[in-house]
Structures are given as structure tokens and as C-alpha cells.
Design a protein around this nucleic acid. Structure first.
Lengths: 195, 195
DNA sequence: TCAATATCTGAACGGGCGTTCAGATCAACC
DNA sequence: GGTTGATCTGAACGCCCGTTCAGATATTGA
């Protein structure tokens, strides 16, 4: 027998993932070469193919894991509270989650068109699951009379777009802390769907 | 003497611009080659260089003209009305303008990182001018008591992000007309900044 | 009609691309 | 300590890249 697992596989794999994440976020998927990724990890390009079947799979796995994390964490939010409390929890969660991983968020939004049609369909389905979770909250709130929203689908997309925009300007060393940002966005969202 | 102007220049130039616009929007700047653009216009790649010094200038001119159009049209909105009326006009204008040119909007948001630092600074400056116009409206409204906004800078970015998101889902043959979309977004924005 | 010149072609330049693979290297188990 | 197999190198494959430019082509003013 020999090694049951590659001795470096457990280290090199994540390092490749991190390098690809950083480079894709900075320059874009199409503008980053496998040789650049390999160089960032201290490898030759060929060695990458011990860890990914091809460049496309590298992008897809980053986006897929990101969406799985997003939906997994979302599912842990309390679902029995009032629509207003659930909406507040959603807003605060969305902001915190996205600010914790700006590079993944950037990739997940910008590189959709670089996915193969099959991979795109998978990510798009997960994205829709996420949107549906918010739409459910808004619908419940409208049904119970605590929200007044003319079109829950449009409101869902509007709220998500507004919240996700935080990643384009927030800086950890900036004027506002994360809780302050959460408070400010929650105040706007709360009013925008209020009766 | 000979031709005072190239007989095709007035036709080929815009055709190159349009092809580049379409291809950049569909595949991304980095993923589109000069040969693809030339082929879409029925030329060899070398001929493009009669119309643009290089690929970067092609991207920059698209984005620069887009921002100039945006700011030019914005300046035509009435500026003497009440903050509330000015905000409504801004919201309706932003939606209509962006839905009329989804490809340019897409490029202007997605390809910023493919600009040279100098070109990026120019576009970023114009973008800030646009944001400042909205922030002025919000500040005036806060000063006159008709708006209640805790942080006008954050609210500015939040509103723009929310409105621009319309381009990611709106389809001309979809469920909602442009005026309906404008009404729905204006309703949400109005409430989100209300006192 | 013909000279002038705007426009375009076609080939070339040096270089980088994603991917493959034979063989070198090296760590873990017997 | 030798064997095994995971890991990696280095070279190669065919192809495409942005850009340049000499020369062909096309159109207009004279």
C-alpha cells in the first residue's frame, strides 16, 4: 500500500480554491488563466488538474458551494416568528452573510454568463429558492395585514438588489459598522413594505 | 483631392460600436476578441483599427458615452420642484433610461474592472456625479422635513441599487409594463424615505 | 478619366491559452 | 527500506489573442 490520501491534497486543494476565488473576483473568470492560478499556489498549471477536471468546474464549484452555504444558513433562521420579525432577520442575515464573503458574492453575480448552460441552470435554481424564501415572508405579511406590497415578486427582487448593493461600497475600515449598516437598511426595508 | 470623408466611415463606425456593445454585453469584454467583433461587422480584424486605437478604447468609449447620456438626460429633469416631486422624477427617469439600454447598463456595471486605472477614474467620477444628484434630492427633502432618512449617502446607494436591479429581470414581453414598473418602484422608494 | 486617399485585406508578429501526459519525485505503509 | 501510488513537473499540442503593416481595393473630387 501507499498513502491512503495524497499528503498534500488536503492542503493544495483549498489553496487552489482560494487563489481561484481571489483572482476570479479581481480580474474576472475569462481574464484569469490556469497558469496564473497555479503560479499563485506555487504549482505548474498541469497540477491543477489533479483537483479539478477543468477551469469551468473550478468556477462552478465556487458558485455552487456559495449558494449551498447561503441557503443552508438561511434555513437556520427562525421561521415561526411574525412576518415582520422574519423580514428583519432576513435583512440582517443577508447583509452579514454577504459582507463576510464579498469576493464570492461578486463572482456569483458577475460570472453567471461564464457558466455552461447546465451549470447556469443549477445556480439559477438555487438563486430562485433564495428569492422564494423572501417572497414567502412578504406574502405572509401581506396576508396578515402587516405589510402593504402591491407586487411581492417585484418587491422581493427590489429588496434583494438593494441589500446586495451593500457589497459594492462597504469597507470594513469605513464610516459605518456592520450593525449600523444593518440598522439603516432594515429601517428602509421596513418602511418600504409598511402598510 | 479625394474623398473628404471615408465613404464607409459613417456607417462602419457605428456598426462596430453596436457589435462590440452586443458582444461585450453577452460574453464579457475579456471573452470577446477583436476578430469576433470584426466578423460580426463583416470585416477583418485589422480594419477595426481605423476606428479605434485599441480594444480598451472601444470599451471606454461605450461606457463614457453612456455616462454622458445619463448625466445629460438627468440634467433635463426639472430641478425647482419639491424634493418629493424631484425624487419621483428621478425614480421614473432612472428606470426608463436603464430599461431602454439594458446592454449598455450591463457593461457599465460589469466591466469597470477591465478599464485602465485612468479610464476607471473618469467613469467613476461620472458615476459619483450621478449619485450626488440623487443625494442632493434626499438631503433637500430631509432639510425641508418631507423625508426622513438617517443616512443620505447610504440611502442614495440603496435606492440606486434597488432601481438598477430592474434590468436583471425586466422583459418587454413580461407581466408588467414600464409605467407599471415605475409605479411599483416609486411606491417602494417613496415609503422607504418617508417621514 | 484619373489621381488621390480613405478603407480594407491578408499575412505576420510574439505571446498566451486550456489541456494532456510521460516520467520524475516524494511521502506513507509493509 | 523497499514498494506503491499520490502528487507534481516540464514539455508539448493545437489554437486563439491584440496589434501592425505593406499592399490591394474602392470611391470621390478634379
Amino acid at each position: 500500500m501507499a498513502r491512503t490520501q495524497g499528503s498534500h491534497a488536503g492542503i493544495t486543494g483549498p489553496r487552489i480554491r482560494d487563489a481561484a476565488l481571489r483572482l476570479f473576483a479581481e480580474h474576472g473568470f475569462a481574464a484569469v488563466s490556469m497558469r496564473q492560478i497555479a503560479s499563485a499556489v506555487g504549482l505548474q498549471a498541469g497540477a491543477l488538474y489533479n483537483y479539478t477536471p477543468d477551469k469551468q468546474a473550478l468556477l462552478f464549484s465556487l458558485m455552487k458551494e456559495h449558494m449551498d452555504d447561503l441557503l443552508g444558513d438561511l434555513a437556520r433562521l427562525p421561521s415561526s416568528a411574525s412576518p415582520s420579525a422574519r423580514l428583519e432577520a432576513f435583512v440582517r442575515f443577508h447583509i452579514a452573510f454577504h459582507l463576510e464573503r464579498p469576493e464570492l458574492v461578486f463572482i456569483a453575480y458577475m460570472e453567471l454568463r461564464n457558466l455552461t448552460p447546465e451549470n447556469f441552470a443549477v445556480i439559477e435554481g438555487l438563486r430562485r429558492d433564495y428569492e422564494n424564501a423572501l417572497q414567502r415572508i412578504l406574502s405572509d405579511g401581506v396576508a396578515s395585514g402587516c405589510f402593504e406590497v402591491a407586487d411581492t415578486k417585484l418587491a422581493t427582487l427590489a429588496v434583494i438588489a438593494m441589500l446586495t448593493g451593500v457589497t459594492t461600497w462597504y469597507r470594513p475600515d469605513g464610516r459605518l459598522s456592520v450593525p449600523e449598516v444593518q440598522d439603516l437598511y432594515w429601517d428602509m426595508v421596513r418602511k418600504s413594505v409598511s402598510a
